[in-house]
């Protein structure tokens, strides 16, 4: 079986500083891989190379066997990798429908003139969010009136609706309260059930163990170890994060 995402010998040098030395891992469909590591371990650099923001100094990224290395962020997104940043990049003053369709809004013609089809976009948003187990109380309300978990769901709905095969989530629970962190964990579970591959960036150990199918620990730009959550524990992961390559 070929993996959904294949990252091979990824390397990134900024001037004299080698932020990422040699990173290899795979993500399968319906699998959540956690990239764990301390600050400066190279997590952000790795995901930016996958999402096309940085061009790797060496190495390759393949999605479904298609080479993505060197493509623009837009081309990478069109190929099926959606990145969800910590700030979610939502337009707080718009409803979930317009946020779902932002940049790709649908219109219907009335006497030859295009008018935004708000109703259809709202319905689609409500439907996709429902598939994630989230009911929107008022689909016409701006998203700023929604909870952290609901907002996260809108960002994820965007990925699902546009049929991303792989979703990268950067510290999704960092700014959330405990109940909302649980909501996000449940969202990740449902994304997996829909066959979406997930890369989760986190340094919150409970999150890591709750969500991961595999834990890829980075330390100083290299993979310090790969573990399944049931074959390791907090202590070992922390030790690997600190750079004790095993």
């Amino acid at each position: 079986m070929t993996a959904l995402l294949e990252v091979k010998n990824l390397k990134k040098r900024f001037g004299g500083n080698e932020a990422v030395k040699d990173v290899n891992f795979e993500v399968n469909a319906g699998e959540c891989v956690v990239l764990a590591g301390d600050n400066g371990a190279g997590k952000s650099t790795v995901i930016k190379m996958i999402s096309g923001v940085y061009t790797p100094t060496a190495g390759t990224v393949h999605l479904n066997g298609e080479l993505l290395t060197g493509k623009s962020p837009e081309a990478v997104r069109n190929a099926g990798i959606e990145t969800i940043y910590q700030d979610l990049a939502l337009a707080d003053n718009l409803d979930p429908g317009l946020n779902l369709y932002l940049g790709r809004e649908i219109s219907r013609r009335v006497m030859g003139l295009p008018f935004l089809d708000r109703k259809k976009m709202r319905e689609d948003a409500a439907r996709v969010m429902k598939s994630l187990g989230i009911t929107v109380p008022d689909p016409a309300a701006p998203v700023r009136e929604m909870s952290g978990g609901q907002r996260q769901a809108i960002a994820l709905a965007r990925a699902i609706h546009w049929q991303a095969g792989l979703v990268i989530m950067d510290e999704p629970t960092a700014a959330l309260g405990v109940p909302e962190q649980r909501e996000v964990m449940a969202l990740i579970e449902r994304m997996k059930q829909q066959g979406v591959g997930i890369i989760l960036i986190s340094h919150n150990l409970p999150d890591i163990f709750a969500a991961a199918d595999r834990i890829v620990v980075l330390a100083r730009g290299v993979v310090a170890g790969v573990r399944r959550p049931d074959e390791t524990n907090d202590e070992e992961v922390v030790r690997m994060m600190m750079g004790a390559t095993l």
Binding site: A91, L94, L102, G103, R104
Partner: peptide
């Protein structure tokens, strides 16, 4: 509301 939202949406 959020310049990044439109930028990342490819506008």
């Amino acid at each position: 509301a959020n310049r990044a939202s439109v930028e990342r949406a490819g506008v």
